[in-house]
């Protein structure tokens, strides 16, 4: 084979390889885009449909975008239900954020205690907490209602928050215990030698290390509190206290037998948005492996 021929065949094989790599890469990205579209489509369709004109909203949902211009009719009519959509959104946000705050606070302390301290009946208590996960919460709704009534907390958002926190804690404590267990003991000991004790140790040294666990607990607490319907329906009795899922029930039930589908779409959009925001805010902690490089 002559030199030029060899060169030619080499560049040919190189070109072939480049073409193959290009094809593999485009397949990879095309698949990714297709999957992303598949997941984003429901959100897009809901959001677009919520901007249709009032009359158009009653028609079959094809095409899935507003055909006769964008309008806020649906949101306006959603606002006519209950005590107004702002009030209910505020209620839901209040309950959900308070649930997150309380759940994180209690489960971090409990997880730390269960992970690091030795005390009598520790394992029995832990199993007991985990065991409550097996009790379907619908079955204790009546006792919960009675307890809240006795405490004077029925029909109060604070009472509802306490119920949500209670339901959220077993999983959260379990999660946080695991998170603390994963932190090497030596780091804690080094901090003790450096003079960090108790709460300072917890906040300055350990908390940043269990952040992924906290993010997970927070996301779950928020989503569950935000979406919860049954307890909110049973435990709240006055119109202006209702959370968004209860409002949505009323919207979906319609008035005088007529369902305002535009308002339903608008309500779904309002309910989806905060969940997306919370997840997008916390997902990077959710994924991050902070422990890398701490100990060998």
């Amino acid at each position: 084979m002559t030199l030029s021929k060899m060169n030619a065949s080499m560049s040919l094989s190189r070109r072939r390889r480049a073409r193959k790599a290009f094809r593999a890469e485009s397949t990879y990205h095309a698949t990714g885009v297709a999957i992303a579209l598949f997941f984003l489509a429901p959100f897009a369709i809901t959001l677009l449909a919520s901007f249709r004109h009032g009359t158009e909203a009653r028609l079959p949902p094809l095409p899935p975008w507003p055909a006769s211009g964008i309008s806020l009719d649906s949101y306006r009519s959603l606002d006519t239900f209950g005590a107004g959509v702002w009030q209910h959104t505020f209620n839901s946000l209040l309950v959900s954020l308070a649930t997150v705050a309380l759940t994180v606070a209690v489960s971090v302390l409990a997880g730390y205690g269960f992970s690091r301290y030795r005390f009598p009946l520790k394992n029995v208590l832990f199993v007991l907490i985990i065991a409550t996960l097996m009790i379907p919460f619908q079955s204790i709704l009546t006792p919960l209602f009675i307890i809240l009534a006795r405490l004077g907390l029925n029909n109060s958002l604070f009472g509802l928050t306490l119920v949500y926190v209670t339901l959220q804690l077993p999983f959260s404590v379990f999660m946080m215990r695991n998170a603390f267990d994963a932190v090497p003991k030596e780091i804690e000991e080094a901090a003790r030698i450096d003079g960090a004790r108790d709460l300072k140790l917890l906040f300055r040294v350990l908390m940043p290390l269990v952040l992924p666990g906290i993010a997970t607990v927070a996301i779950f607490a928020f989503l569950n509190a935000w979406n919860e319907f049954l307890a909110a329906l049973v435990l709240l009795s006055s119109n202006e206290k209702y959370t968004l899922p209860v409002l949505m029930m009323a919207v979906r039930a319609g008035r005088l037998g007529a369902v305002n589908w535009g308002a339903v779409q608008a309500g779904v959009a309002v309910m989806t948005l905060p969940c997306l925001v919370v997840f997008l805010l916390l997902q990077r902690y959710y994924m991050r492996g902070l422990m890398a490089g701490a100990v060998k």
Binding site: P184, I187, A190, M291, A292
Partner: peptide, 11 residues
């Protein structure tokens, strides 16, 4: 104290 596993604060 210097630990076998270094025990540096990773954050």
């Amino acid at each position: 104290m210097v630990f076998q596993s270094y025990a540096l604060y990773p954050h």
